[in-house]
Structures are given as C-alpha cells and as structure tokens.
C-alpha cells in the first residue's frame, strides 16, 4: 500500500526559475527511497513542497488514501498530514531553548496533548534508540553536530510518523561524524521505517535504499530499484553522475 504518492508536482520560483517540472514519486510502506542529483536540481524543494514548507504550484499528493491537490489543500489538511510525517533537516534545526529531551517531547506534549509523564518516558526511549540517553539534559549548543542530528532523528521518530523525510542529514557534519548518523538511519531502515532520503552518500543509498530516484533540473532522470540503478543504469547522465560522485 502506498504511504505517499505525489503526481506531477510543479514549482517555479520568481515566475521564471522552474525548479520542479512535473515529478512523480510513489513510496510504499517500508520503502527507503534515496533521491540523488546534482546541486540545485530541486531535491530540497521537492521535500519541502511535499511537507508544505513551500507551496507547490501544481500536482496532487495522496496520503493516507486521500488525494489532495497542492493548489487547494486546506491548512487543516496540511496540519493533519504533518502530524503523520516528520522531517530531518540538513542543519538539524533543534529548538535551541530546549534540552535534548524537551526537543523530543515538545511535539508530543504541545502539538498532540500527550500526558507529560508518558511523553517523557517515550522521549527517553527515543533518545536511547539514537544512543543519547545520557545527553537528555544537554542543550543543542552543548552537543556535537552528529549528536544534534541524532536528537533531531529522535524528535522525528517520537511522533510515530508514517514516513520520515531526510534532507541531506549528514552534509553539514564533519566526515568523522557522519557514521554515527548513518548507522542510526540504517537501523531505522532495517526496522522497516518508511523514509525518503536526499543524500550524496552513495554508500548509504546502495546499502539501505530499495529505490533510487535521480533528479536534475527539476526532472526525474532515472528512477529504479536500487540494485538496478547502480548496477545497470539506463541513462548516460546517471552513469556519469554515479562515476563523478564515487570518485570524489
């Protein structure tokens, strides 16, 4: 069953910069979809439009068996979809005035009205999962980048989302810190979490993704099963990109 299905999504900035030029994307339950592509290709914009941080100009989105058009979806419908999805940002975006634990519980207590005790016990469980239970009471400013990103993942997990969007979760990290974040993500993939991951980490895409989408200039160049994509890419553009990025 498809968790999410986006059809013909379009986005133009400033009336002339076509950033998404009709993209289709369907994600089944348990899928890990990796989105690859050169800088400026529209990957971030795609994720932001799907979660309504940016308003797409055209297209439809199917979520929880309801189909909405991007043009006339209501605020309430957006809020409902957001309560069942989560977003992990490139630069973490943790709440700086909240501790690690509070970052995780905020969405539970404030947005979902969960009982405080219950939220705290759940928050601790999530922090434990990302290996940061001992950093519960630390503020983001007291954590390394890798730790902050793991808190952000715990925050995303806590709300029991049906799907998590990751936008280059390791790009802002020093190379020696990417491993700890990727291993948490690998663990999620193994547990069957549904995810869309924009990434430049070919290794991660190869190992964890079951589907890969390569996009450039707002269009899908190639979209295929992971094995197929890496072993037998159809388009020359894909071949060149894989080559360029793996020799980097």
């Amino acid at each position: 069953m498809a968790v999410l299905s986006v059809k013909d999504i379009k986005k133009t900035f400033n009336h002339e910069n076509v950033v998404l030029d009709g993209i289709d994307l369907t994600v089944e339950k348990g899928d890990v979809v990796a989105i690859l592509g050169p800088s400026g290709g529209g990957k971030t914009t795609l994720l932001r439009c799907i979660n309504f941080l940016e308003t797409a100009d055209d297209g439809t989105i199917e979520f929880d068996n309801n189909i909405y058009s991007f043009k006339d979806i209501t605020k309430k419908e957006i809020a409902n979809i957001r309560k069942n999805t989560a977003f992990v940002f490139q630069n973490y975006n943790l709440f700086l005035n909240k501790t690690a634990l509070e970052n995780v519980t905020e969405g539970l207590i404030i947005a979902r009205g969960m009982d405080k005790k219950e939220a705290i016990s759940k928050g601790k469980k999530m922090l434990e999962k990302v290996g940061l239970l001992d950093r519960c009471d630390y503020y983001p400013n007291q954590l390394s980048g890798g730790q902050q990103q793991r808190v952000a993942i715990a925050r995303a997990l806590a709300t029991d989302p049906e799907i998590i969007y990751f936008d280059e979760p390791t790009s802002a990290l020093d190379p020696e810190l990417t491993g700890e974040v990727l291993s948490v993500m690998r663990q999620l993939a193994d547990e069957g979490m549904t995810m869309i991951v924009v990434t430049h980490e070919l290794g991660f895409a190869k190992m964890c993704a079951n589907h890969v989408m390569f996009m450039e200039n707002g269009k899908v160049v190639e979209s295929a099963d992971s094995k197929e994509f890496f072993e037998n890419p159809k388009s020359d553009r894909t071949k060149a990109f894989i080559k360029a990025i793996s020799t980097k």
């Binding site: 809020a79 977003f87 940002f89 909240k98 404030i110």
Partner: peptide, 21 residues
C-alpha cells in the same frame, strides 16, 4: 528561522512555536 519550520514539522501551530520556542 529553521526552528519555526521544525516546529511546524512536528505538528505545532505557528502560535505554539512562537510562544514556546
């Protein structure tokens, strides 16, 4: 600014994010 977007993504309303974050 990213904190506002993060708040929206965990389901908080604009006003909740303003008040608490």
């Amino acid at each position: 600014h990213g904190q506002l977007e993060a708040g929206l993504c965990v389901g908080m309303s604009w006003w909740q994010i303003m008040r608490r974050i």
